[in-house]
């Protein structure tokens, strides 16, 4: 099977100076110098997908191209999780984000657990962090968001 653009775009980052190998926690996170989220964009209608599709779920067209999404956006929905999955520190805030220029994504809002801090239109920006290290010393890099703008 042909490698799809998503996986090809997110190789492990090797640095000869000895810094650890880094891999993105999911392949739609691209670990460039400035990390960014990449979606597959339907060439016909512009619908965005984080995984591979055989045809566009919206318009049924079959051609897609990678598209870099914005690192900023607004909170569309949120929750503060108190009863979390095993091994996940709680409480933490989960957010659904409307990205500037298109795309909706879900991740954590870092450093905030007070629901009163979230107002309609709250602006946020992308942030990456190390989510774990495996036995070979490879770091898994995840993404979340942090508050951006006046509310900081």
């Amino acid at each position: 099977m042909e490698a799809n653009a998503l996986t090809a775009a997110s190789p492990a980052v090797n640095d000869p100076s000895g810094t650890p190998t880094r891999v993105p926690v999911v392949d739609y996170l691209v670990l460039d110098e400035q990390p960014y989220i990449q979606a597959q964009c339907c060439n016909a209608c512009g619908a965005l997908y984080f995984d591979r599709r055989n045809a566009c779920a919206r318009c049924f067209a079959t051609e897609f191209s990678p598209r870099r999404l914005a690192g900023t956006g607004k909170v569309r929905a949120f929750t503060v999780v108190h009863r979390a999955a095993p091994n996940i520190p709680a409480p933490y805030m989960s957010v659904v984000v409307d990205l500037d220029g298109g795309g909706v994504i879900k991740s954590n809002l870092l450093g905030v657990t007070d629901p009163q801090q979230i107002k309609a239109g709250q602006r946020i920006k992308l942030e990456t962090f190390t989510a774990g290290v495996d036995d070979d010393g490879t770091e898994a890099i995840a993404f979340g968001y942090k508050m951006d703008g006046d509310e900081l």
């Binding site: 999911v26 979390a84 999955a85 996940i88």
Partner: peptide, 16 residues
């Protein structure tokens, strides 16, 4: 389908 290297529940938001 997302090439996840670890379980992402609680790391990339919650879907429970």
């Amino acid at each position: 389908r997302y090439g996840a290297v670890m379980k992402t529940e609680g790391i990339l938001g919650t879907s429970l």
